[in-house]
């Protein structure tokens, strides 16, 4: 990152804190919306009966939440444009 004014140590800490705050938001099922980048939210996965592929025994898997990312318009367009440029 081009941060001429800030010492690398501060940038490193800032990046860690940004990722932590995003993780914390998702942990509380709070959406993240970054204009031009994308949005993060949680998707629910219903409980299901799974199977241990080695032993073949069935296991009950409870419902759970998984993180989901939807790319924003600018990110989508820039990434897709790189396909034709390359």
């Amino acid at each position: 990152m081009n941060q001429d004014q800030l010492p690398p140590k501060d940038v490193e800490l800032a990046v860690k804190m940004m990722l932590d705050s995003m993780t914390k938001a998702l942990t509380n099922n709070q959406r993240i919306e970054i204009r031009g980048f994308g949005s993060f939210c949680l998707h629910y996965r219903a409980p299901r009966i799974g199977r241990n592929p080695k032993s073949g025994t069935t296991v009950e898997l409870p419902g759970k939440y998984v993180p989901h990312f939807k790319p924003g318009k600018e990110l989508r367009e820039r990434v897709n444009a790189s396909l034709t440029k390359a």
Partner: peptide, 19 residues
Amino acid sequence: RRVVTFKPGQKLKAKVESY
């Protein structure tokens, strides 16, 4: 087209799972 996908890491998945 070229698209972006996000694959959450183990730590994030574990934290969010039990919500």
